[in-house]
Design a protein around this nucleic acid. Sequence first.
DNA 1: CATCAATGTCGTCACTGTAGACTTTGGCCA
DNA 2: TGGCCAAAGTCTACAGTGACGACATTGATG
Lengths: 199, 199
Amino acid sequence: MTTARASYHHGNLREELVRVARELARVDGADAIGIREATRQVGVTARAAYRHFADRDAFVSAVAVSVLDEMAATIAARQADADDGTALLTAVGEGYIAFALDEPGWFDVAFFAMGEKLQAGGRSPYTLLEESLEALVAEGRLAADRVGDAAMTCWSGVHGFATLTSRGPLRALPRETIDDQARVVVADLVAAVTRPTKD
Amino acid sequence: MTTARASYHHGNLREELVRVARELARVDGADAIGIREATRQVGVTARAAYRHFADRDAFVSAVAVSVLDEMAATIAARQADADDGTALLTAVGEGYIAFALDEPGWFDVAFFAMGEKLQAGGRSPYTLLEESLEALVAEGRLAADRVGDAAMTCWSGVHGFATLTSRGPLRALPRETIDDQARVVVADLVAAVTRPTKD
DNA sequence: CATCAATGTCGTCACTGTAGACTTTGGCCA
DNA sequence: TGGCCAAAGTCTACAGTGACGACATTGATG
């Protein structure tokens, strides 16, 4: 699927390298991203990549940004038919975990080089989490001054579950078992940060 | 600190390699473990390592086992003066996170190659978690059939927090802030899985 | 139309994991 | 005691990686 190149200048090398690297990472995670392999597949000299990325780390980071974008979009799609804060928050949690399980390699990349600020432009999964919590505040089911703590507890919970089951020690469990457990964990977390409706 | 070797046969190469590799990993994580570097520091040919480890992955796994042992011991020490289930569980959670923050490189190794069964011999952090939950059951603060779910929620929560703050996107936060937040998250998790005392 | 900065290429270096074939040596048995 | 052999080293080599300096090509801009 590597586009043949007629002219000396590729014209779109940076983007194409990221595209190729995403496929490399999809199977085996961040370690599978290599400058030589990626440039080879694009049909370009290895050195050419250094016109666009300072070093391998910068390359991997670029891939991470790209993947994180898609992750946020995937999660957002899952929130489509959520009509209250609880549903929104549950969708974020389950979507986060589902992405990690469906695309373990990408999940690995996304949180590998996520140093400093990475959610530069659009929405990140964390943004979606914050929005859900704000909705809960509006509904009176979460104290405004608990948003930060709740965000941390929720993020930790889903991230840990995702890490353990997608590439961690629990990766061998059958997918169905994991899905069931994911629902339980997310429900536990939602219950932990919200107070019951008062009606 | 590499022991000088008088005879052709080293006599204790496997253990010494693991010792050296632990130090390598301590700084930069699992990626810093290298067959060549480790054998060089021990004063032995690279090929010699292959008499004791099938390949690099097996080497890293051996280091992981060693580190995980120490992690369990560190956590257990923290439980020393816990007198009820809640205190035991809190100690496990805070100990788990503290280890990850104090030794991020080791934490990385410990959960890198932890495939299959790894807590072969003694206690693992997970074992300690289960024991704490059993204590809560004995105190009537946790339903016996909820132990599995509670274990998963707690493990996910602390593991996620540890991952995010020790080598993940939140690694740049000041340690004090992280410690404060850790206490909150652990408290949230404990509250999430226990029911209040009925007295 | 000339030129120049951006973008590729070439050849090379240091380093890594891994493999085959050889050497040394400690311990066991006749 | 002496001989031998399997365990545990050594030496040499290969393919692959990230990175670099120097050079070549080109499209856009004055």
